[in-house]
């Protein structure tokens, strides 16, 4: 068993493929109807401001599948460097890029090829120079040590099978004094070990 699967005992490749399958579908058919809300309806639920969404291409907004609102915690400052973990099609990366401006930089990271391709195409079309999208895993963030002022994420860390590794990586890429602003989920009822091993519960 690899270290990355040891927290749950799940087959890491199988879990990741199940998650990719779910979000590949969102990238291709965002309005299909899932066990979570998507797009502008979801953005309203999690209290995104209309002016933030003005900075985001509509096809990117349509793929929004987060669970919270990293920007309601605190605004990002001009010139800051930001990493967006599990960025999907890039809604939060685009908002972050608009807040940090051209003197800042944003790196969006996602493991799903279709999401990353969609994000890069939208970035190229919009001409946002301070925005970069990379493909990879939260347990091995392709960003240099101490690069980021802020790490944001929205609905992705709960899908990460080895959260200790992911938080270790977040700490590594942050500057001393750097902050995390994260949207995620919390469960109020106990989840049994057997339930944690059911992949369909991770994705649904």
């Amino acid at each position: 068993m690899s270290d990355a699967s040891s927290e749950t005992g799940l087959d890491l490749d199988e879990l990741r493929e199940a998650i990719r399958c779910e979000y590949r579908a969102v990238a291709k058919e965002p309005d299909k109807g899932y066990h979570f809300h998507t797009g502008r309806r979801l953005a309203k639920i999690v209290e995104y401001r209309d002016e933030w969404l003005d900075a985001v291409p509509e096809k990117v907004v349509a793929c929004f599948a987060g669970t919270g609102n990293p920007f309601s915690i605190a605004p990002l400052a001009p010139g800051e460097r930001v990493v967006d973990l599990g960025c999907g099609a890039g809604i939060d990366s685009f908002i972050a890029a608009s807040q940090v401006g051209e003197s800042g930089a944003v790196i969006g990271l996602d493991m799903t090829t279709e999401m990353t391709e969609k994000a890069r195409a939208a970035r190229d079309e919009a001409g946002v120079k301070q925005l970069d999208f990379r493909q990879g895993y939260l347990e091995s963030i392709p960003v240099e040590d101490g690069w980021a002022d802020v790490v944001i994420s929205n609905g992705a860390l709960n899908l990460c099978p080895n959260k200790a590794s992911a938080f270790g990586e977040i700490r590594r890429v942050l500057k001393p004094g750097g902050r995390i602003q994260i949207g995620d989920i919390m469960v109020h009822k106990p989840v049994s070990d057997s339930a944690k091993k059911k992949i369909d519960l991770w994705t649904g």
Binding site: G33, Y34, H35, F36, H37, V46, T67, G68, N69, P70, S72, I73, A74, G155, R171, L174, K175, P176, G177, G178, R179, I180, Q181, I182, G183, D184, I185, M186, V187, H188, K189, V191, L201, G204
Partner: peptide
């Protein structure tokens, strides 16, 4: 949400949180 999920079964809610690296 359009499809039923396990969220209600486990009392799952969305959250925002923050923290800082020393």
């Amino acid at each position: 949400a359009p499809q039923s999920s396990s969220a209600a079964k486990f009392g799952t809610v969305g959250i925002n949180y923050r923290a800082r690296k020393p």
